[in-house]
Computed example of a mutant assay.
Amino acid sequence: MRLAVINDYLDLAREAADWARLAPGIDVRFHGRVSEAEAPQLLADCDMVVTAREETRFDAGLLEHLPQLRLLVTHGMSNAALDLPALAARGVTVCGTGLGFTMATVELAWGLILGLVKHIPAEDRTIREGGWGAGLGRGLTGRRLGLLGLGGLGADMARVGQAFGMEVIAWSENLTQQRCAELGVRLVGREALFAESDVLSIHMRFSSRTRSLVGRAELGAMRPDAILVNTSRGPIVDEAALVDALRSRSIAAAGLDVFDREPLPPDHPFRSLPNTLLTSHIGGRTRENILARYREAFEDVQAWLAGHPIRVVAAPLAERHVATAQP
């Protein structure tokens, strides 16, 4: 049997686990970033694949070229690049991992916020070019942090914002007054969240319900000096609308770790807009987290080989039918 560990461009999988401890006779291969064009040839003879989050799209088209694939392991328990119905129909078991130290995403969100309000990238660039002083930054104390989503990450964002002396407001469809009171956050309506926030940070799961949740109307309601930060998923924000808002300066800036297409296309407008601060979907990708995810991916492979899959995201249709038929 053959196992491919792909998109391991930091070469951490081999450090995280002793893959030679898998059942005898398993051929384990390690690859860096695998493009959609490369995947059919590289993975054609693989029975098992471990992939990083949303790096390679496993859809019906690719699966036609992977007749032997029976196990796919992904970092995390959700992955927008996986066509789960197509994988189930092809008899592939999909397993996931934990997220590790989730505060890493909060740390990055605040890095983007501070980078934008303090003009840190511009200051660094100006000094390196021989200048001194790129502009006047702003403070956070006394300003208003708006949170689109107040789950675990949103709660951590709120605590840091409060430590900076910010007022914190929040909205999501099912957010309650009790939850807000527990965290010292003011519950507001959806329109008020966008209109009143100096900094708006997104912390929601991506689904059909949240696709383009932040559109032209929401961006249009924001203040001209407000900034938007997205470390959740790109499609939660209408990308074309955000480009227009940044170009017209109807909002001041955006700090973005996630995008509709990843890697971000070379000619994407975000790359040339002066009021963006961009990172490459690194929110949860700390060294500690990646090592932990590969250790759990190794456990997933071991458990599947033993006939007892763990952390199952999606089971093959045949297995579901058998389970349903049990008395």
Rank of each mutant, 00 (worst) to 15 (best):
M1F: 12
D8N: 13
D8R: 11
Y9Q: 14
L10G: 14
D18F: 07
D18Y: 02
R21A: 06
P24G: 03
G25E: 02
I26P: 04
G32I: 03
R33E: 06
V34A: 02
A39E: 07
L43I: 05
D45V: 08
T51C: 01
R53K: 08
R53A: 06
E55A: 00
T56G: 03
H65R: 04
L66E: 02
L66Q: 09
P67Y: 05
R70E: 09
H75C: 14
M77D: 14
S78C: 15
A80Y: 14
L82E: 13
D83F: 06
D83Q: 05
L84H: 07
L87Q: 05
L87R: 03
A89C: 04
G96W: 02
G98V: 07
G100N: 06
G100Q: 02
T102F: 01
M103C: 14
V106Q: 05
W110E: 08
L112M: 04
L114F: 03
G115K: 02
L116I: 02
V117T: 08
A122T: 08
A122F: 06
E123N: 11
E123R: 02
R125G: 11
I127G: 10
W132V: 09
G133P: 10
A134I: 09
G135E: 01
R144I: 11
L147N: 00
L148I: 09
D156M: 15
A158P: 13
E167R: 09
I169F: 01
N174E: 09
T176L: 10
Q177M: 08
Q178P: 08
A181G: 01
E182C: 05
L187M: 11
A192L: 11
E196M: 09
S197I: 10
V199P: 05
L200W: 08
H203P: 00
R205H: 10
S208F: 06
R209Q: 07
R209W: 02
T210D: 04
L219S: 05
M222P: 11
R223G: 12
I227V: 12
L228C: 09
R233I: 14
V237F: 15
E239F: 14
L242W: 11
A245V: 14
L246R: 15
A252S: 12
A254N: 09
G255N: 06
D257Q: 01
R261S: 13
R261P: 10
E262H: 01
P263V: 03
P266Y: 03
H268V: 08
L278V: 05
L278N: 01
H281F: 04
I282D: 03
G283R: 03
G284T: 13
N289E: 11
Y294F: 15
Q302F: 12
A303W: 12
L305T: 13
H308T: 13
V312A: 06
A314V: 06
A315Q: 11
A315V: 07
A318N: 01
E319V: 04
V322P: 05
A323W: 00
